[in-house]
Design a binder for these strands. Structure first.
Lengths: 163, 163
DNA sequence: TGCAATTCATCAGTACACTGACGATTATCG
DNA sequence: CGATAATCGTCAGTGTACTGATGAATTGCA
């Protein structure tokens, strides 16, 4: 059957399988964390804001590899849920200064088990010995392909404050 | 630095890395195939329609693991580009019967090198010996987690035409 | 045969991702 | 200093993904 071969060729392409795994991973997170009403993306932003108080949106993007345009909506939703605060930048009035609220910190603490079980479920089909291998390869693929996404992770800015 | 540890914990989570790899893979496809004006999703749909003439939208979804709601827009865009035709189903008037056009077949043939180079680029950071291992694990993760996405691949319908 | 359950495509609503563009602001350098 | 370049957040537009709902059509079964 030519059509079955064609299907297989398509369905076994890295790009196709990666898309599917992303969908699965996203769905597992929503399911495990449904009591908390945040998405994986919102969770990542919240954690990063929590560990970088006063960060601006573009710097946040460079840490978690979000698109600069997308982040606006994400932090807007976090703000609406009162998990973060967004103030105008003090030094640079182009920026918005992001900081986590006590409610945000509480959510991070409470959601932790759900986050952990999500990661466990994603890798559950692999044998224990394979999981490390897979994660190393995944990390490798992401980091060496970093430059290919619009939102590459950038190294700590070399503040040319050579004073 | 607590904040750097926090960042690492987040940035090395399977879910986070999978999201990023998906973004990278998508961007690589668009870049390699930019002369053809189709997305990875549209390409997958086109190939599947090409090998299953007259298929309806829901059956198409079950092959390539799309969401039933999403496919409407995708095939609409393919139709607008005259790569497929969408007719009302003959036997079942609820369905739309999808078929590829000559232009669609031509595009599939011409885009092939770009598709191949995309898949090569995605896996390029791995050593040749690792690529098979990674693909096997990826396949395993997707198939054994299949039920967790909204759009699971379904086996050939058991047309209870036990006749 | 007739009605309830199911299925197909689609809709409205929400969220993420990216392109290209913009005004406002800040940085750089002649 | 002052003009130019770069950066920040945002906007409009497009595309993918999913929830929950609906009307139309088909199926299953009493």
């Amino acid at each position: 059957m030519a059509r079955l071969d064609d299907d297989r060729r398509l369905l076994e392409m890295p790009g196709h399988l990666i898309r599917r795994l992303h969908q699965i991973s996203f769905a597992l997170f929503l399911d495990q964390a449904k009591a908390f009403g945040v998405t994986p993306v919102q969770y990542a932003a919240l954690v990063a804001i929590g560990s970088h108080p006063g960060i601006d949106q573009t710097a946040l993007c460079s840490i978690i590899a979000f698109d600069r345009t997308t982040i606006g909506g994400v932090v807007g939703r976090l703000e609406k849920k009162k998990l973060i605060k967004r103030l105008n930048g003090a030094h640079d009035r182009r920026t918005k200064s992001l900081s986590i609220t006590p409610a945000g910190r509480t959510l991070i603490r409470r959601i932790e088990p759900a986050v952990q079980s999500t990661q466990r479920l994603i890798l559950a089909p692999l044998k224990a010995s394979e999981r490390n291998t897979f994660m190393q390869m995944l990390w490798h693929l992401v980091h060496l392909n970093n430059a290919h996404s619009r939102a590459p992770v950038r190294e700590r800015e070399r503040k040319r404050r050579t004073s």
